[in-house]
Amino acid sequence: MFGNKLSSLSIITASLILLYSPFTHAGKTQHRQHGSHEHGSAQLNIAIEGQRLYLELSSPAANIVGFEHKPHNDKQRQTLKKAIKILNQTSLLFTPSASAQCKSNKIEVDVDTLQDEHDKKDSHHHHSGHADFSAHYVFVCQKPSKLTTLQLLLFKPFPGIEKLQVQLLTETGQSAITATAQKATIKLK
């Protein structure tokens, strides 16, 4: 008797749990994972190969524009627009050694999660309460052997970036450096 009651109770509980689990909602399992996200800190990946200097900047949106949601008002829309404009101007962000004669060749800025619904290309991104900026840059250098340093200027337009975790891949190996506004020159050789 008692055992029967208990088992029927557990069946109800189990079905309740099932009802509220995300599996029943979606009908299939979701892939749940989130990258780390730390305000004040951003990542810069650098790879040098042949004549090409490749830079990959990614930062929590809070460091760049001060908010992490779609712009609510005109002021925020302006801020976002300005940030995207700056991210598209390499001369405001990086200076490779002048003697290496590097020219910016390709720029890609991705602020997908922050753009307004109507100008968003695809909506597979979940909004997790955080948003990131990422940008890719390719420089082509005439004299890659002279490419010894990279000066980071981006601390000035984006004071929200306090620390930049740099990972550097070169002919001689892989290394990691932390750059700040005070330590803004990266040795590439």
């Binding site: 892939h31 994972q33 990972q167 891949l169 190996g173 892989q174 290394s175 990691a176």
Partner: peptide, 19 residues
């Protein structure tokens, strides 16, 4: 790192050695 079928991780050995 974002491989869906299995939680995997790829590291840069040079950077990990430095750490």
């Amino acid at each position: 790192n974002n491989y869906r079928e299995e939680p995997l991780q790829a590291i840069l050995p040079g950077v990990a050695l430095q750490e």
